[in-house]
């Protein structure tokens, strides 16, 4: 077996890094999934704010959609249907407390905002919260996921 030259070894290592980057980029899937999810959150919050009595029967379809989406993305066929041909491995994600906290930080942040909105009794606070959460899901969440996945090997 011929040992690769240092140049060949460096080229091979570059190919390994490029493979990982390709998977990470593709793993975010279609932009429409993020936009659709953001719109669902916005319309749900707006509907609950404007028609509080309809809240129980509005919640169940949204919970069902979220469950179908989450379960779908964890299966090969479901993921393909949702336009995601690859699932990123989380084997190399660090298991430290700081990392776990970082991964859930946006959800915690939105939870704190929701709590503040409900405690302050802002008029139409639900609509403002829905707009904030929806915009986050549509535009910032994919970037955050990308940043998180790219950062995992550096820590």
């Amino acid at each position: 077996m011929n040992e690769p030259t240092p140049e060949e070894a460096a080229t091979a290592l570059r190919a390994v890094r490029e493979g990982k980057e390709q998977v990470i980029r593709s793993a975010l899937g279609s932009q429409w999934i993020w936009i659709g999810s953001g719109l669902i959150v916005f319309f749900y919050c707006t509907a609950v704010d404007l028609f509080p009595t309809a809240s129980p029967w509005l919640t169940w379809p949204v919970v069902a959609i979220v469950l179908v989406g989450v379960v779908g993305l964890h299966t090969r066929a479901g993921s393909t249907l949702l336009g995601r041909p690859v699932r990123v491995s989380d084997r190399s994600l660090p298991l430290t407390f700081a990392w776990r906290l970082l991964r859930v930080a946006p959800v915690l942040g939105l939870g704190i905002v929701a709590l503040a909105v409900s405690l302050l009794h802002l008029p139409h606070g639900g609509i403002y919260f829905g707009a904030l959460a929806g915009l986050y899901i549509m535009f910032l969440s994919p970037r955050f996921q990308l940043w998180l996945l790219r950062r995992q090997d550096r820590d």
Partner: peptide, 9 residues
């Protein structure tokens, strides 16, 4: 390498 970064593709 591509598959190493993925659960499946």
């Amino acid at each position: 390498s591509l598959l190493a970064a993925a659960e499946w593709a």
